[in-house]
Design a protein around this nucleic acid. Structure first.
Length: 318
DNA sequence: GTCCAGGCCGCAC
DNA sequence: GTGCGGCCTGGA
């Protein structure tokens, strides 16, 4: 599975040789997967690769034919990187079935052809929860700014650059406190984050145990947290707690469901989520991510002059 | 200056 | 159960 080759990393002007590991895990669209609204600590490099952190390792990931190449940028041995990256990028079995089932779906078919390789991540649950509490009434650039600031302020350095840090444990966030988080720009979300950290540190909520729990039970646990509603809970369930049946509804998705699946204009967010879970079943989270990506690019294309979607999805005829 | 962003809470009705 | 105002703040 894993092959070897030699890369040259330019860091602080010095050249360092490091071995990269090739993972033949199938096509991965790293831009839409790592930097499309699931995770917020991946940074685009000038060569098109992405740099970020998985667990306690600072890594660089780039696309290669049939998979990705991963390089440690922390000067440590490669042990464990292959396994961790495989975990993080999720399995592809579901994706293959999903592709076959929805190839001719009017909304998802074009998206599957346009962004084939968009995957569901399997992130660390605490960082994921923290990130999506932060996402409330915010936008992706600002979420990246906030989450990155918290990581760099309170995380443990594991590499040469400032963003090469582990994500701070709940105990560290509690110690930092609401006011410090407000100073970093989290606004009204600061108190939610400290409360969530307390619930986890005290053991009132055991995030990792929710992986084994049913979707309904895990969701019910999460929404008890102050500042976590159905939407944020579904993000955490889909991106970190192995719940492929979760479906996230925001304004982009609601618009898509009305446009492509004839959902009533008056359908509430909660109704829409229930309908979509019934319709897509175990492929809900995947369908949701492709739909979100497509709709988000479409709205951005409109802002930029409306060319992006036609370029990405030629056969779609919007 | 205004408006909006991958929401949620508290409170009416 | 549905609707509405308020909440922080950076960027367009």
């Amino acid at each position: 599975m894993a092959g070897w080759d030699i890369d040259v990393i330019m860091s602080n002007g010095n050249s360092v040789t490091a071995e990269s590991i090739k993972l033949n895990i199938g096509n991965v669209d790293i831009e839409s997967t790592l930097d499309g609204g699931q995770a917020f600590r991946w940074w685009h490099e000038v060569d098109g690769s992405y740099r970020g952190v998985i667990g306690r390792r600072a890594l660089n990931i780039r696309e290669i034919s049939g998979g990705v190449a991963v390089t440690a940028v922390d000067g440590k041995p490669n042990a464990g990187i292959e396994h961790a990256t495989n975990e993080y990028l999720g399995g592809a079995e579901n994706l293959e079935k999903f592709r076959q089932l929805y190839a001719s779906d009017p909304c998802l078919g074009p998206a599957l052809r346009g962004y084939s390789g968009l995957r569901l991540l399997r992130q660390d649950p605490w960082e994921c929860l923290f990130s999506f509490i932060t996402s409330s009434t915010s936008n992706i650039p600002r979420i990246k700014l906030n989450v990155g600031a918290a990581a760099e302020s309170f995380g443990y350095s594991i590499g040469p650059r400032p963003p090469d840090v582990t994500f701070p444990e709940p105990e560290v966030i509690i110690e930092a406190g609401e006011n410090h988080l407000r100073e970093l720009g989290f606004g009204f979300r600061a108190k939610y984050l400290v409360a969530a950290a307390s619930a986890i540190a005290s053991g009132a909520i055991k995030l990792h145990d929710l992986k084994e729990a049913s979707y309904d039970d895990a969701r019910a646990e999460l929404v008890q947290l102050h500042g976590v509603g159905e939407k944020i809970a579904d993000c955490v369930l889909a991106f970190s707690l192995d719940k492929p049946e979760s479906f996230i509804v925001d304004r982009h998705i609601l618009r898509a469901l009305r446009k492509w699946y004839k959902l009533p204009v008056k359908a509430s967010l909660s109704y829409a989520a229930d309908w979509a879970r019934g319709h897509f079943g175990e492929y809900s989270a995947l369908a949701n991510q492709y739909m979100f990506h497509r709709e988000r690019l479409a709205s951005r294309a409109a802002e930029w002059g409306g060319v992006h979607i036609e370029k990405a999805l030629p056969e779609d005829g919007i």
